[in-house]
């Protein structure tokens, strides 16, 4: 039988020390209340020591069975209040009619300059 410190503590694989400590306290209290055995307490202490000290980098720990194997399984996809979608930036205030007229004027000037360049090809220098 595999002795798995995370399973003994009742926390997901890779849980941080703080979570392990809280779980240990909860379990130890329950053992005391329910009259648990010394072996159970020893197991619990061993598990806390392993999680708190021995396993420095859970991601690289290859000797331990992982529950969950995929943390995503417990983190459902999708947006919600705790994973909100991007905010929307409201548009700037502005007079759209004036803006359109400004755009028309810009287009008129640009087009007029275009016409000047067309006309210039058909004009010659005046006689002296």
């Amino acid at each position: 039988m595999e002795r798995n410190p995370y399973v003994i503590l009742g926390v997901p694989f890779g849980s941080p020390k703080s979570v392990a400590n809280a779980a240990f306290a909860r379990k130890a209290q329950a053992l005391k209340r329910d009259g648990g055995s010394l072996d159970q307490m020893t197991d619990l202490t061993w598990a806390l020591q392993r999680v708190s000290v021995a396993i420095r980098e859970p991601a690289t720990a290859m000797e331990l069975y992982r529950i969950p194997a995929d943390p995503e399984a417990f983190q459902a996809d999708g947006d919600g209040v705790l994973r909100p979608p991007p905010e929307r930036l409201p548009p700037v205030d502005g007079d759209r009619a004036s803006a359109l007229e400004g755009l028309r004027q810009g287009a008129a000037r640009e087009y007029l300059r275009y016409l000047v360049s067309v006309r210039a090809t058909r004009v010659t220098l005046p006689p002296p």
Binding site: R104, Q105, G106, A108, R109, Y111, L112, R113, L115, V116, V118, R119, R122
Partner: peptide, 23 residues
Amino acid sequence: HAALARPGTVDVTGPLVPFAVAA
């Protein structure tokens, strides 16, 4: 003149059609 003047200082739409006809 309208084409060369600083934007917004001269009416550019007025001469547009007559000049287009000329060009």
